[in-house]
């Protein structure tokens, strides 16, 4: 059984639905990409999964029904999200951001160890640990966002357009980082991206979302090799 199983998801804002009947699955330890243009419904899908907006359909995480769950329950079940735009908590320091990420945990020792570990992984963050998070650069905020989401020790990480606003070099580093997290920690990742090349580079499978509808699951290699997709999303 898949870790995340979504069937016939409908979600939107107010009167209009943006996402119409989406099906997708993510299994343990795999990286799945959701590709699509602006306005296709990628972020809506992510927010629906995390419980931030009204949705109906069947959503199951590790067998548990989360279609009616509140956002905090979903986090406690082990589903964390790195939101679009990074969601930095600007008024807190870097270290406090990480601490806040561990909100659902109670093991002080473990939390302290994790904070150390993430500062080791991202030394730039360690240098700025007492600084206000709002003052960090885009790349640093992205590292912070990922570490913060990981602090809750999730089993599935949702990443909404992590490359947004980052330079090409930083984007590459960031994807490499995500790939490492996936390999070392067997972390399942659902990744939403416009930047298809790099995303497909670290993914196992992918879906294409267009105007609120999702196609069938295809392997990453398959998607990368598809000419139509190349023309539409990779620009050549």
């Amino acid at each position: 059984m898949s870790l995340l199983q979504i069937e016939d998801l409908h979600a939107g804002y107010g009167a209009a639905d943006i996402v119409h009947g989406v099906d997708l699955t993510v299994d343990e330890g795999e990286v799945v990409v959701l590709l699509g243009a602006n306005g296709a419904g990628k972020t809506t899908t992510m927010r629906a999964i995390s419980g931030l907006i009204a949705r109906h359909g069947s959503l199951r995480f590790d067998g548990t029904d989360i279609s009616r769950a509140a956002p905090d329950e979903i986090v406690r079940l082990g589903l964390a999200q790195v939101p679009q735009g990074r969601g930095t908590i600007a008024d807190l320091t870097v270290e406090e951001n990480l601490r806040a990420g561990a909100h659902v945990r109670r093991d002080k020792q473990g939390i302290a160890e994790d904070i150390t570990r993430w500062f080791d992984t991202y030394p730039r963050l360690a240098e700025r640990r007492k600084q206000q998070a709002g003052l960090l650069s885009g790349g640093e905020q992205q590292m912070l966002a990922i570490s913060r989401a990981m602090m809750s020790r999730p089993r599935l990480l949702l990443c909404d357009e992590p490359s947004l606003g980052l330079s090409p070099k930083l984007t590459q580093e960031m994807f490499a980082s995500l790939s490492r997290i996936n390999h070392e920690m067997r972390m399942a990742i659902l990744l939403v991206e416009q930047n298809a090349t790099l995303a497909l580079g670290i993914a196992d499978r992918g879906y294409l979302i267009e105007v609120g509808h999702v196609g069938a699951s295809r392997s990453a290699a398959d998607l990368a090799g598809d000419d139509a997709i190349r023309a539409a999303y990779l620009g050549y």
Partner: peptide
């Protein structure tokens, strides 16, 4: 305190707070 941190998080960025499991 943890509660105090949660309160400051919620004030600063309610959506992020929700995504971290804060009610």
């Amino acid at each position: 305190t943890k509660l105090g941190l949660a309160m400051r998080t919620a004030t600063s960025n309610p959506e992020s707070a929700a995504l971290l499991g804060i009610r």
